[in-house]
């Protein structure tokens, strides 16, 4: 496209909030929407800060983020992992961080039982996973998150939008850990 003299802008997946804000600013700068972008970023920062301030756990709780039912997960080095960390949640996948530089190791079922997470976030709900199917897995009924009904199905759309809709994800996680 550059050879055809068509301007190209490629956005890489941001790795944290600062990079997400920077990308919004950059895009706004290119499209001459700097003022609007500043407002969007300011409102995002306020909403996210408010969500964290009101919902952050006083005492850390362990959680497991499930990408699929073969137990792939995301460590705290990923963007999604950082969102959970902002709420004082401890990621059990960090115990297997050395297995995958990209931050997405496949955990063993036995390790999840041993870790006994207080929350389980399912991003594979669209593939039929839910609290019932999780409880039916061998040994999983005894996990705290399952026993105390703290298995959360993540909306398939929200967790992968690293733009202004990040606020929705922060609010969803915050509400999930406070109301469950």
């Amino acid at each position: 496209m550059r050879n055809l003299k068509i301007a190209v802008y490629v956005e890489h997946t941001p790795n944290n909030l600062a990079e997400a804000y920077a990308e919004i600013s950059q895009l706004a700068s290119i499209t001459s929407h700097k003022t609007q972008a500043a407002k969007v970023i300011a409102s995002m920062k306020t909403a996210i800060a408010q969500s964290i301030a009101t919902k952050k756990l006083r005492k850390s709780s362990k959680f497991f983020h499930e990408l699929d039912n073969t137990l792939y997960s995301a460590t705290s080095s990923t963007f999604i992992g950082k969102v959970y960390a902002d709420f004082n949640l401890t990621n059990i996948a960090d115990g297997a961080a050395t297995a995958d530089d990209g931050g997405y190791p496949q955990l063993q079922s036995e390790y999840i039982l041993k870790s006994d997470p207080q929350f389980i976030f399912l991003s594979d709900g669209e593939f039929g996973e839910n609290a019932k199917t999780v409880a039916a897995r061998p040994g999983w009924a005894g996990i705290s998150a399952v026993a105390f009904n703290k298995v959360v199905i993540l909306p398939s759309d929200i967790p992968s939008r690293w733009g202004p809709r990040l606020v929705d994800f922060y609010q969803f996680v915050g509400n999930s850990i406070s109301t469950n």
Partner: peptide, 11 residues
């Protein structure tokens, strides 16, 4: 597969 990268799993 279960022990080389434990507690992670190797296909």
């Amino acid at each position: 597969a279960r022990t080389l990268l434990s507690p992670a799993e190797l296909p």
